[in-house]
Amino acid sequence: MIEKPGVVIQVEDQFALVQTLSDSSCQHCVNQQGCGMANLTSMLKPKYGTVKVVNQLAAQVGDQVIIGLEENALLKTSLVFYLLPLLGLFSGAIGYEWVVVMMQWPELEILTIIASLLGLWMGLLQAQRINAKISKDTRYYPVILKKFVLEKCN
């Protein structure tokens, strides 16, 4: 389970919007003064992010929470959104090259590029269709694992 702290900023039915603090890109380096990636991230990346989560603990606006996402859900969605377009790209190029060999057509590189881009586009469309189904399935949403209250220090 991947966990992250945040603050509830809005509640809608069974969902809540949780504002989380963005992490640095690496998290391995304590001294980030000499790291170009940390400097670039701090300039380009917003400091806070907003995540739609399943509000199974009935958290209210202002509550500090720990949200969690199953690694399995992250893995499945990552495979869909990265692998399908890549498979489409390669399938388009390889499919066109196979047709050229089978039909004994002259090989034109520009047509291979067009076929691979067409395959990429088809992969992206399929990923978009799957996203429409996944976005309705709460198993792929992060959930609120626990609410906690920070004690004030005087």
Rank of each mutant, 00 (worst) to 15 (best):
E71Y: 14
S91C: 15
Y48P: 01
V51S: 05
T77R: 09
I2M: 04
Q14F: 01
T50Y: 08
F148E: 09
K76Y: 06
D63Y: 00
I9S: 02
L145N: 05
E3A: 07
A127T: 05
D23L: 15
L118T: 13
R139P: 02
L89I: 07
N131G: 06
E109K: 00
G95I: 06
Q10M: 07
C29F: 15
L40K: 12
I114M: 10
K45A: 07
G88F: 15
D23H: 13
Y141S: 03
D23M: 13
S135H: 09
D13K: 01
Q19T: 02
Q19D: 09
K136N: 11
K45Y: 13
L75M: 12
I9M: 06
A132N: 09
L108A: 05
A115G: 04
I114A: 07
T77C: 06
C26V: 08
S116T: 09
A132Q: 05
N31S: 08
V99P: 05
I9P: 14
T41K: 12
V99K: 11
L21C: 07
W98R: 00
V8H: 07
L44T: 13
L125M: 14
I94E: 07
R129K: 10
G34C: 12
Q14W: 05
Q10R: 08
L145C: 02
A59I: 08
T41V: 10
Y141E: 08
Y96N: 01
I114S: 02
W105T: 10
F90L: 14
Q10E: 12
W105D: 04
G62I: 08
W121G: 15
T77L: 11
N39F: 12
T41S: 10
V30C: 06
G62T: 14
I130C: 08
V149S: 09
G6H: 01
D23V: 10
I144V: 05
Q126T: 14
L150S: 07
I67Q: 03
R129P: 00
M103E: 02
Y96M: 02
S78V: 00
M43W: 01
M102R: 09
K4H: 13
H28L: 06
L21W: 13
Q27H: 15
V143D: 06
P46W: 03
Q10G: 04
L150V: 05
Q128D: 10
G6E: 10
R129H: 12
L125Y: 10
G62A: 12
L111K: 01
C153Q: 10
G68K: 15
I66L: 03
N31T: 13
G92L: 01
G6Y: 02
L108T: 06
L108Q: 10
G123Y: 03
L40S: 12
K4E: 13
L87G: 01
M37V: 12
L111T: 02
A59M: 02
V100R: 04
K4G: 00
L120S: 11
D63P: 00
T77S: 06
K76S: 02
Y48F: 08
D137H: 11
L74V: 15
V54G: 06
P5W: 00
